[in-house]
Design a protein around this nucleic acid. Structure first.
Length: 589
RNA sequence: GCGCCCGUAGCUCAACCGGACAGAGCAUCGGCCUUCUAAGCCGAGGGUUGCAGGUUCGAGUCCUGCCGGGCGCGCCA
């Protein structure tokens, strides 16, 4: 079925064209005629402000123009009433049959209901989470995961070809720090007495990785502590600088282990943690098409080539022994270093190469989901794209604000220091995947998220996840009851009796159901899964209200089947919507 | 100091491209289970959308300036 909204847009368009031909309107609006859902049902089902926007050009009072437009709209059985209201709105009230026709459509389309083709198969890459593989994901990453996955699934639902990608920062200094941390723990397991650096990774998982290395390689990487720490600068505890100290330690590890040995320890850390992150996300219902390695960019020369391209384009200069990118030419607040004085490329240089690579892979649109603390980074990446001749508007960076956990009304303190943070896995274990996925996307991404752990765990109406899932389970329960009572059911008979769904509660449910495709499209194009989350709560609310007001399993078979068809349509939409958010739709609770 | 985000009911948040009387949930108060799951439903009260200007037929939404909160301003990643 054609969407009701497009139907009205077409009718209005025809009417405007008629007035244009009659010389009443000098100009037609560019693009589709604006038609919106009314905010207040007393104004009908849909409204258009087109007369208000065209009145001035037509030299007519808005209401007068609205009247002329209404007069030019051909009658349609699906439109029950067209009225001019307020300053010049045109309000449409649809006939009950127009909404009732939705029921067989939903049941027929099943899981596909709500999907569309507005994306026209255009290729979009969604890069999200991309946390450094130096430790387990924490609750902040969880929000990026749930949000990015929902955005990707929504885009796919409206017809984009979506490529989900995790950028693995496996080439940076943080990874070297992890490698050094693993090695030191390993040395301890070998029986060496070693002080642990202030800047090292202290989580228990480092011990686990070290133990794995020891199991697999025995004492192969053991070096005497005296040798390891000989002539190192002072660490923080001795009044030195932690950064200088850890760098020296990393250099020592490289020297003593040799390239291959160091790489083995390094990769043990990387592999273990990345594997863990992968499992964690998979259990969370988040899957990727690609895990893209930063190191691969460095090793295959892509970073060097990207830097060279900027240099060849005249966008760089040398100062203080470093190579700078003149990002200020493209709107950044200051220039950025690409190659350090010591000859090493920066993380930014890798990112330039990475985004160049994304463009070269032919994605028409790039979506990056970042933590809000990286917002200062946006202008320089866009500047790099512009300097490389790509349209920076192809890149859409979505900044996800922090999530703050609350327990018993108190803020849960989190610190990434000393492993004292809450991991995503702990959160999932505590509140469950469904609640976690839903709570994470309940708010728009630029909104700080207060994550109430008690609420997420509560099995009550206060908890929106349970409220929605309960609606789904209730429909299933009704069907079970029907079978137990020996009542027969005939879907076709129900469709023949849809005209009997005239109760206010039924009209309300039908109206809300009709909004679903529009909500999915708006949520996808606006990258706002919270719209879908809110919608599902409304639909569940309409259903629960209906449930309390009218029995479904009535003796009148025609009415019973019509009502069952309606609530099965509700179940289908709830299921489809929850699926897009990564939340399960249980059959019983 | 500069930049980005946020400021809506007691609390947590909605409000589609600027539209009509700013909506939900929680909390508070009062009702509904011999009938399909009360993990539910119904009703009531609660607002100068941080402040001051501006643009517009029309502003929570756009612009300017303040006030308040968060984050960021490394040759770290």
């Amino acid at each position: 079925m054609e969407r009701l909204k497009s139907l009205l847009q077409q009718r209005l368009h025809d009417a405007l064209a008629q007035l244009h031909a009659d010389g009443v309107l000098a100009q037609l609006p560019a693009g589709p005629v604006p038609v919106e859902r009314t905010r207040d049902r007393r104004h009908g089902d849909f409204a258009s402000n087109v007369a208000l926007t065209l009145a001035r050009g037509a030299n007519l009072a808005p209401r007068e123009l609205a009247q002329r437009i209404v007069a030019a709209i051909p009658p349609d059985p699906r439109v029950a009433a067209v009225a001019v209201a307020g300053p010049g709105f045109i309000n449409f009230t649809m006939s009950p049959t127009a909404f009732q026709a939705l029921v067989p459509e939903i049941l027929g389309a099943g899981d596909a209901f709500g999907r569309s083709t507005v994306g026209a198969g255009r290729r979009v890459q969604v890069e999200f989470v991309s946390a450094n593989p130096t430790g387990p994901l924490h609750v902040g990453h969880g929000r990026g995961a749930a949000y990015g996955a929902a955005v990707a699934d929504l885009l796919e639902a409206v017809g984009f070809q979506v490529h989900r990608e995790y950028y693995v920062n496996d080439a940076g200094r943080q990874m070297d720090i992890l490698a050094a941390s693993v090695w030191l723990r390993y040395l301890e397991l070998c029986g060496e007495t070693v002080p642990f650096p202030a800047n090292g990774y202290q989580g228990d998982y480092v011990w686990d990785i070290a133990a794995d290395v020891h199991r697999g390689h025995g004492d192969a990487f053991r070096r005497p502590a005296a040798q390891v720490f000989a002539d190192l600068p002072a660490d923080e505890a001795e009044g030195g600088d932690r950064e200088t100290y850890i760098d020296a330690l990393i250099a020592r590890a490289r020297t003593l282990l040799g390239g291959d040995g160091y790489r083995t320890v390094f990769d043990a850390g990387l592999g273990a943690i990345l594997g863990d992150i992968r499992r964690d996300l998979e259990e969370f219902g988040v899957v990727y098409q690609e895990w893209f390695s930063e190191r691969s960019l460095v090793e295959n020369g892509a970073v060097g080539r990207a830097v060279e391209r900027l240099r060849a384009g005249g966008h760089t200069y040398e100062r203080d022994g470093a190579l700078w990118f003149r990002s200020t030419d493209f709107g950044d607040t200051k220039d950025r270093v690409l190659v350090r004085e010591n000859g090493q490329t920066t993380y930014f240089a890798s990112d330039v190469a990475y985004h160049l690579n994304k463009c070269e892979r032919g994605f028409e649109r790039l979506v990056d989901v970042w933590g809000a603390d990286h917002h200062g980074y946006v202008p320089r990446v866009k500047a790099a794209l512009a300097a490389l001749g790509a349209d920076p508007d192809r890149l859409d960076v979505l900044l996800v604000q922090f999530a703050v956990l609350y327990r018993g009304g108190e803020k849960v303190q989190m610190s990434t220091r000393s492993g004292e943070f809450i991991t995503l896995r702990e959160l999932r274990r505590e509140v469950g995947n469904d609640a976690a996925r839903f709570f994470y996307v309940m708010r728009k991404c630029e909104q700080h998220l207060d994550f109430d752990l008690d609420l997420a765990k509560s099995e009550s109406a206060d908890n929106p996840v349970y409220y929605i899932q309960y609606a789904h389970a209730r429909v299933c329960s009704v069907e079970k009851q029907r079978a137990e009572k020996g009542l027969d059911r005939d879907e076709a008979r129900g469709n023949d009796h849809l005209a009997r769904l005239t109760e206010d509660h039924e009209q309300a449910v039908l109206y809300t159901l009709s909004r679903y495709p529009e909500v999915v499209e708006a949520a996808a194009l606006g990258e706002e899964p919270h719209q879908l989350a809110h919608y599902l709560r409304e639909l569940a609310n309409d259903f629960h209200t209906y449930y309390n007001a009218h029995p479904f399993l009535v003796d009148d078979a025609g009415l019973r089947d019509a009502r069952l068809n309606l609530i099965f349509a509700v179940r289908q939409v709830l299921r489809n919507g929850l699926r897009l958010l990564g939340v399960s739709a249980p059959e019983s609770m």
